[in-house]
Computed example of a mutant assay.
Amino acid sequence: MSSIIGLLILIADIFAIIKIAQSSADTVAKLLWILGVLVFPVLGLIVWYLAGPGGKKV
């Protein structure tokens, strides 16, 4: 069961990294967001979703 959750997190992180790379943010911001998602896979993904480049307006 935990391997399925890990796989889903990996897929979501890859999706986030692709979206970050495609965003219109500057290169430094993209690198910092990608680093955040890689270092903190779950928390980084949540923070990116809420506040990242092109993030949702809450």
Rank of each mutant, 00 (worst) to 15 (best):
G54W: 08
L7S: 15
L50H: 10
L35M: 11
G54I: 00
L8Y: 10
L38N: 06
G36Q: 04
A25P: 01
G52P: 03
D26M: 02
W33C: 08
A25L: 04
V58A: 14
A25K: 00
A21L: 14
V58S: 13
S3H: 10
I20S: 07
A29L: 02
K30R: 09
I14G: 04
Q22I: 06
V47E: 04
S2I: 10
L31Y: 02
G55W: 08
D26G: 06
A29I: 00
I5P: 08
S24F: 04
K57N: 13
G55Y: 07
G52Q: 06
L31D: 01
A12K: 10
S24A: 09
I5R: 15
P53Y: 01
I9A: 07
I11G: 14
L7T: 11
I34C: 12
G55T: 06
K57W: 05
K57T: 12
W33G: 05
I9Y: 08
L45I: 03
L50T: 11
L50G: 09
I18T: 09
A12T: 06
I5F: 11
F40D: 00
G44T: 01
G36C: 06
Y49T: 07
A21N: 09
I11D: 15
I4Y: 08
A29M: 04
S24T: 11
I46T: 07
K19N: 14
A25V: 03
L38R: 09
L45G: 12
A16P: 10
Q22T: 08
Q22Y: 07
G44F: 00
I4E: 12
M1C: 09
Q22M: 10
I9G: 05
F15Y: 15
P41N: 05
A51G: 05
L45V: 03
D13M: 13
G44P: 00
V47A: 07
A25N: 02
I46C: 06
I4L: 12
A21P: 05
D26V: 03
K19H: 14
W33K: 02
A21I: 14
P41K: 06
L43E: 08
L10S: 15
A25E: 04
L32R: 05
M1R: 10
L31G: 04
A16S: 15
K19S: 15
A16G: 10
K30E: 01
A12P: 11
A12Q: 09
A12C: 11
S23F: 00
I14F: 11
L43F: 11
P41I: 02
A51E: 08
A29Y: 04
S3M: 11
L43T: 08
I17N: 04
I11K: 13
V47H: 05
I34T: 14
I14W: 13
Q22N: 14
I11T: 12
L8F: 15
K30C: 01
K30S: 01
W48K: 07
T27V: 02
V28F: 03
V42R: 09
S3R: 11
K19R: 14
I9F: 08
D26A: 03
V37W: 12
I14M: 13
L10C: 11
V47D: 06
A29H: 00
I9S: 06
L43D: 07
S23Q: 06
G36R: 02
I34R: 01
G52A: 06
S2G: 15
L45Q: 04
L8C: 12
W48E: 05
L32W: 07
